[in-house]
């Protein structure tokens, strides 16, 4: 294997930047729904009411797919809850979609972690399939026209600032 020791600092920086850009582009392009209409669905919430996402057309919608055994999901749900408390009056709707196999465990999780936004059950995983979820947590930002604009397929420490910027951008449209 060729050694990178002979590379100058500039060459290394360029290589690292190129790799990062390629990863970001691949991540964004891998999600076929970007720029498309968000698939409509109706799901039952843990509170018992039914929610149909097309009824929120005209407002910004954030969908986050989570599982009770996913540690990162918990941190992300807390962050999303804070942003929901801040921006709900600006026309933000937020739903957490549980893709747990064990509905009882998901219910326990919801009871133990009370959040301000509505949590939905997707026991058959039809909605997760329609949104092509292959990683948890995945968060989908849908604009006021019902178009999927941004997708996060993971949650890292730097994602919060980017997420808030993009959310504000959608709310300002």
């Amino acid at each position: 294997m060729k050694s990178f020791r002979g590379w100058t600092l500039t060459q290394r920086c360029i290589a690292a930047a190129t790799l990062t850009i390629l990863c970001l582009v691949a991540n964004a392009q891998g999600f076929a729904l970007l720029g498309q209409s968000a698939p409509d669905f109706a799901l039952r919430s843990f509170g018992g009411t039914n929610v149909r996402i097309s009824e929120d057309r005209g407002d910004v919608v954030v969908l986050t797919f989570w599982g009770s055994q996913c540690g990162v999901c918990r941190r992300q749900l807390d962050m999303l809850d804070r942003s929901f408390a801040t921006y709900r009056s600006a026309g933000l709707h937020m739903y957490g979609v549980s893709v747990d196999d064990d509905a009882a465990r998901a219910r326990q999780f919801v009871a133990a972690h009370p959040l301000g936004f509505t949590m939905l059950e997707d026991p058959a995983k039809d909605v997760a399939r329609r949104y092509q979820i292959d990683n948890l947590p995945t968060t989908v930002l849908i604009d006021r026209g019902g178009i999927v604009r941004y997708v996060y397929r993971d949650f890292g420490p730097r994602d919060e600032a980017l997420y808030l910027n993009q959310l504000r951008e959608l709310l300002n449209e």
């Binding site: 109706a42 799901l43 039952r44 009411t49 039914n50 929610v51 149909r52 009824e55």
Partner: peptide
């Protein structure tokens, strides 16, 4: 199989 929301 159709789920009804309160608005519907």
């Amino acid at each position: 199989n159709y789920l009804y929301t309160p608005r519907e």
